Simulated scan of single mutants.
Amino acid sequence: MRCLGWSSWAQRMLPPRFARPTPSWTRSWGIAVSIEDEYRSVRYGAALSRMDHVGLLRIRGDDALDAVDAVCSGDLWVRDGRMLQTLILDERGQPVADVYVCPDYDACILMVEGMTTEQFSTCLARNADPDLEIALEDLRPEHELISLHGPYAWEVLSKWLTPDIIGLPYLSFYGFDRGTCFRAGKTGEYGYDLVIRSEDAQDARRELLELVRSVGGSEVSLGTLDLCALENGFFSVRNGSVEGLTPVELQLQWRLSARKQFPGSAAIEARRATGISRRLTYFVARDGVNPGDQVRGPDAPVGEVMAAAFSPGIGGVVGTVLLDIPVAYPGIDEFFVPNEGSAQPIRTVSSPLIVNRSLLVNPHHHSYATREDVLNPPMWEGSLP
């Protein structure tokens, strides 16, 4: 396996099984980069990614926030310049979109995963008061979304934009001459989403990628970002099927309002009244576990694997399993996935599963050049079954 500009300390901090026999490859501006190298960029340096899968919408008008409130599941108690994570549910109470709501004075910016602009417009027309004075605007293709992630993403952005960026609080945003910077991210590391005007996007990507490479990073794929989100317990509309599941089973009730009606709220109340039989729980395993696999206990089946992926940081498989309520708890190592002629043990765990490097890096005292001075405990402090 190739390592692009990484010091020996980063190699030492990863488990021995970091190198896979047959690595996957993506292409970063003409340079082949393995998934393992991408992962290292996110966890130890900085990573650049195009977020073409995210919808960018703006609702203008005095009633913009009221319109958004009608379709989202959470209470939109958020002031201008700040961001709030919420969901859009279907009538069965199943999550169909993961949404950042960003009030911006007389408008509201939305970053939407899982739903097209047309689908959102239909949902808005169906659920919002038709008398509200609003105008829905699709920010693409006039804008592009670029993201930065990693313990030194702040250093990249401070050189490209302004040193003041290190003071931008999590879940907040501000405008600059070429677009808007959102302090967000779902990898567990420092994260920034940049909405850039299309005419400036190519130059911005080139400049940012040069800076990213100067801190040992690379451009990374959506799959790597999804893996990092999975390790940290972030919900993703791509990490496993939600068919038949509501935020109650998915442990997302903190994104549900208790004071208002919203699409799917009747189904949520019905599910709460009848009770749930299974709940999402995180697990680790050595190998041989895939989405859809049955999970068994000593005497009977107890659940089904929803998401599973190899984690270089852990040296094994990390994922989620939908377990029967009596056993849907972390710290249980009596479960296994039956394979042909063998049984693959799994252990349930709590999220986040790893020690994110960004927790150890202080932008006021550290930099990539002085990374040797940063404490580096093992990324994974647990053990595999």
Rank of each mutant, 00 (worst) to 15 (best):
R58E: 05
P95I: 08
G114F: 09
V42A: 06
R92F: 05
L89D: 02
A70R: 01
E91P: 10
V54H: 06
L76F: 01
R58H: 00
A70L: 03
V54E: 07
A67V: 03
Q85A: 14
G81H: 09
D104M: 09
L56Q: 12
D75M: 01
A107W: 00
Y39L: 12
R58F: 05
V42S: 07
L84C: 09
G55L: 09
D104C: 07
A47N: 03
M83E: 13
G61T: 02
E91A: 12
L48Q: 02
H53W: 14
V42D: 01
D80A: 14
R58S: 12
G45Y: 05
R50W: 13
L110Q: 04
V112E: 03
A70N: 04
R58M: 11
D62R: 14
Q119P: 10
Q119V: 09
C102H: 02
D80Y: 12
D104K: 09
D66F: 02
M51N: 14
F120V: 07
G45E: 01
L48N: 10
W77L: 14
A64Y: 00
D80G: 15
V71T: 02
G74H: 09
A67D: 00
D63V: 04
P95S: 08
V54M: 08
I109F: 15
M115R: 00
C102P: 11
T117G: 09
D66I: 06
R40S: 11
T116Q: 05
L76N: 05
R60S: 08
L110E: 01
T117E: 13
